[in-house]
């Protein structure tokens, strides 16, 4: 089913903004409310908007199932890799080995209320990003699979 031109134009217009907002929620998960799961769900909402606005044949040329499957698997692998990475430096599994290290995301923060800095919190932003990518791919592929079982119009 293909929606009217108004709906398709609106979806085209909103899709990049929804993507950017979702990635913002993912990347600022350690500073503001939200995080990987929530931001990934927001991004998947943008994908669902495009799927609703266009017909299935058009959507599969824009949003590839293989890409979404790859996002899901790569996200989970990065997440587990961030957990195993702690073993490489001699810390326990899933410990926050990058916090206070001065390396990537390694800045310390003062105690109490403060505006915060993106370059803090150790492995938490990496795990947020990994989970966000995974939820993006996972929810998008669920919607794509459910859409693919709808019979074609006119047949």
């Amino acid at each position: 089913m293909r929606m009217s031109k108004i709906v398709r134009t609106g979806a085209n217009l909103l899709y990049p903004f929804i993507l950017i907002f979702g990635l913002y929620v993912i990347m600022h998960g350690h500073l503001t409310p939200g995080g990987g799961f929530q931001g990934g769900a927001v991004v998947a909402t943008g994908v669902a908007l495009v799927i609703v606005a266009y017909s299935f044949e058009e959507v599969t040329s824009m949003i590839k199932k293989v890409g979404m499957k790859a996002r899901e698997s790569i996200g989970l692998l990065i997440f587990i890799g961030a957990g195993i990475g702690a073993l490489a430096v001699g810390a326990p599994f899933f410990s926050n080995f990058l916090a206070h290290s001065g390396l990537l995301f390694g800045q310390s923060i003062p105690s109490g209320p403060n505006p915060g800095d993106l370059n803090t919190a150790g492995v938490i932003p990496i795990m947020n990003l990994a989970v966000g990518i995974e939820v993006w791919g996972g929810l998008a592929i669920i919607v794509l699979y459910m859409l693919s079982s709808i019979p074609k119009e006119g047949s």
């Binding site: 350690h30 995080g35 916090a99 923060i109 919190a121 938490i124």
Partner: peptide, 16 residues
């Protein structure tokens, strides 16, 4: 805040 270096305590509980 001191241990996980994250301002969002909820996220540091969930991921750390």
């Amino acid at each position: 805040q001191a241990q996980a270096a994250a301002n969002n305590i909820v996220t540091s509980v969930v991921f750390d």
